[in-house]
Simulated assay, not measured.
Amino acid sequence: MKAAVLYQPKTPFVIEDVAIGKPGPREVLVRVAAVGVCHSDLHFVDGILPFPLPAVLGHEAAGIVEQVGSEVRTVKPGDHVISCLSAYCGHCDHCLTGRLSLCVSPETRRGEEDEPRLRAPGGKPMTQYMNLSGFAEQMLIHEHALVAIRHDMPLDRAALIGCGVMTGVGAVMHTAKVQPGETVAVIGCGGIGLSAINGAALAGAGRIIAIDRLSGKLEMARTFGATDVIDASSADVVAAVRELTGGGVHHALEAIGLKQTVEQAFSMLRRGGTATVIGIVPPGVEIGIKGFELLEEKRLQGSRMGSNRFPVDMPRLVDFYMSGKLKLDEMISRRLPLERINEAFDDLRRGAVARSVLMLDH
């Protein structure tokens, strides 16, 4: 199959043929239709986060089931599906207590003694990225790494739900548990931040404050439900939020992954408020908060993939889109063929897009 292979950090992807295996008993072969270019991938491309290379990256994908293993019960050939990097086993402590996104069971992956799912040109085994490796014509994945959706959902928009939208909306609804009428600030208006803004609107937040340094993204934030915007390039963000809300917000969501913005999120809370970190903070970075403020019952917490229960959540998000409540059309800045993947990552580095989607023409 054709795939985009990364051989070294900070180098271009190479489009070439990669060998893919046959489905095992619990595995599904998916023909990829569309895959989003997510900022999480950029961390690996630029070497901020390590990963064994060469590799096929990509984790925000949607497609059509081609083959299923003998024990697969959740999908069948012809089903339209969304993949998810938080594959779950279904029977560990995390899964049995409803925290599927925290599952770390190795059984959704092939073992070292098993035939690899992917082989690089020349036959060398490849480590599968996030259980998925979506920058390719096909994915071979565990059945608990995808969910079937309705056939009238456009697959290019469905792909966005697989990571960015699920992460942003889930962080609001599941991790932060935003209640109707509460005030929300979102720092960073990329794909995940815009999804968090949309999620806050869906949750009935009374005031939604979008914060970014780019005017174009702030305008987009209004489209997604922001009631107020703050240009971080020309304002004291914390002071501006406190002034707008009369003392601070109930919820601050950080969607960038920087030390400064995480600390700002905590500082802009009112008493009893919660700061939720959605962005990926690089390894080794320490966050500083004023310990005395913990006496005001302020909380700082992380969110992994929106604390999702994706087999339930993603079909519901599809229904939200189909009923006009979830904004996905507005999020797609560009649709590109797989061969232009390096161009899509250049756009991402410049902050020029909310989301680029790679379309695989079969």
Rank of each mutant, 00 (worst) to 15 (best):
N308G: 02
E330S: 09
K259G: 14
H250T: 10
V172M: 06
M166H: 09
G170W: 03
I209Q: 01
C103L: 03
A205P: 08
S133D: 03
E286H: 15
F310C: 13
L328H: 03
H91M: 04
R335L: 06
I256W: 04
E343I: 01
G216I: 02
R117E: 11
P12H: 02
V18Y: 09
G204R: 02
V172T: 08
S323Y: 07
L338H: 09
F310D: 14
I192D: 09
V37D: 00
A61N: 05
D152M: 10
S267N: 12
D346W: 00
R270C: 08
G279M: 01
V56N: 11
H94S: 13
G24W: 01
E137T: 11
A120F: 04
H91A: 06
I48M: 15
S356K: 00
D347N: 14
Q301I: 14
P116K: 04
G58F: 02
A3P: 12
R316F: 15
R304F: 06
G63R: 09
V32P: 13
I141S: 13
A235D: 07
R349N: 12
D41A: 07
V277C: 11
A171M: 01
G21Y: 12
V357C: 04
M130C: 08
P50A: 07
G216L: 06
T175C: 05
V37M: 00
T274L: 05
